[in-house]
Design a protein around this nucleic acid. Structure first.
Lengths: 277, 277
DNA sequence: TTGCTCCTCACGTCACGTGAGGTGGC
DNA sequence: TTGCTCCTCACGTCACGTGAGGTGGC
């Protein structure tokens, strides 16, 4: 029999660890002196301790280990736990590789923080109360946005957060003819249509949910977006994503009073994984 | 300005997260109503929040992120932090691959827990008060161990834990002539020699520290070791280690009264990485 | 006025490390 | 007798999630 100090030296673990394992019922000393509280371990307990240490190194939680070592756990259950664990490790390797790519992308930059901060999100299915037009230039887009914002400032019976969004059906950097859809993105109850003027009406359609959206905040004047868009392109290349759908711009904050005031826009692009090269 | 609920919806984070980031000084609302305590965030704060989220995904701690975002941190320091982080990720990928190998090795087994529990340890530099002999068989080894244990049960002036150990200079599974060194492994003050009998004397020599030692507990009769040794071989193959030095057997517990009683032996083999195949 | 949103505690998480303050054992 | 070892609390870790219990805002 060994006192806790000797036993911990043999196994090269801390005494605290042994006391903790007793506390959670994973490994109890063979004998505890009721007078002094001293713990006494036998050499025969070393195999169990080693097994615990090995399973811990495989990344199992102490709770899982306790179950694994429980006699009432069947071999099939044990295999199941290990198979699950294997899948987890494989995924975590993937994630670490992602992180590695991300860190390297920033280190490749001269100024490390001059990179765009692209955040992956998902979007629920939404209503889009909007009008689709082909407009000659960004000025026309801005006018349309402004007219919507002033004519229909709030949607009746719509308690949810709503933003004006622009869907770019033609590439946004293609300046000749902008095929855009402009209107309100909504999640609650939405009317079928809303009158904008004599000639123009917003009509509702349903946008499907999108699983993965690369998003990026642009702060500045409303037509400066193309630089930011370019940065997103670089990011996607470095991080192995590609555009897989129509881009949106969410006008999180319209320019305040002055046309030239700062707006806050979230660029959103549906993306999917690039094929491995 | 957005209240915390709207701001958290835009950024797709929880309100709790935003409150926590304020608490640790990472991101404070632009304005807090002193009457109600309501937090108000502006759209202009989204870039900072996104940057925080991106750096968090790269695996930086919130404390590191706070330093990164601090204006007083130089670009060089930032590069340093990211370079360090890169190295950490690379190491963690290695470790995960190790775990993956370990889990797979067990899943390859029919009975998952029938595998040996090999634990990697290190050994400090030690004194070895021992005698080296070529003995004809395991019986002779056992006799020698017993004679040492009974003749020199404790080392005078040696407060430290001491075990009898056997160093196997010839392969332990080679039964013809066993070239072994038997004696006490000690770390404290050790005499130069100790008299065993008229003809035999233990003499002290120094064992160097060993960085990596594959260890394995064997419980049973003292000469059953070769099966356990075989299991170790399989393990090393599967986990890409190879023997790089002389093996030891630490007699953690001698057979009690009877020769046939259970002993507890820790097999220790210095190992190094196998070359990648 | 009634939901809805916000507020501030405060506990829980996971596997121990690290003292503090006190006692047993040779 | 004097170090050494052991004991039992109890706090700290990291980044929040999850209630509990109460109040402000439209």
């Amino acid at each position: 029999m060994f006192r806790i100090g000797d036993f911990s030296k043999i196994a090269q673990v801390s005494g605290r660890l042994l006391r903790y394992y007793e506390e959670i019922g994973l490994l109890s000393p063979e004998f505890t002196d009721p007078q002094t509280g001293y713990r006494y371990y036998s050499a025969q307990q070393l195999p169990r301790l080693n097994r615990i240490l090995v399973l811990k190194e495989l990344g199992l939680s102490l709770e899982q280990i306790a179950r694994l070592l429980d006699d009432h756990t069947s071999p099939d259950e044990i295999r199941g736990m290990l198979t699950l664990r294997k899948a987890q490790i494989e995924q975590s390797v993937q994630e670490e590789m992602e992180r590695l790519r991300g860190v390297e992308a920033r280190l490749n930059q001269l100024d490390v923080l001059q990179q765009p901060d692209v955040v992956l999100k998902s979007a629920p299915a939404q209503h889009f109360l909007a009008i689709r037009e082909v407009l000659p230039d960004m000025e026309a887009v801005k006018r349309r946005v402004r007219s919507i914002a002033t004519t229909i400032p709030t949607i009746v019976g719509q308690p949810n957060l709503s933003h004006i969004a622009v869907l770019a059906h033609s590439p946004i950097y293609e300046p000749a003819a902008l095929d855009v859809e402009i209107g309100y993105l909504l999640t609650g109850k939405t009317p079928d249509s809303a009158r904008l003027s004599e000639e123009y009406t917003l009509t509702r359609r349903e946008l499907p949910a999108i699983e993965t959206l690369a998003t990026l905040i642009h702060v500045g004047r409303i037509n400066d977006g193309h630089q930011t868009y370019g940065a997103l392109g670089t990011w996607m290349e470095q991080n192995r994503w590609q555009i897989s759908g129509t881009g949106r711009e969410i006008l999180v904050q319209l320019p305040q009073r002055d046309e030239e005031d700062e707006a806050v826009i979230e660029l959103q692009y549906p993306v999917s994984r690039s094929p491995q090269e």
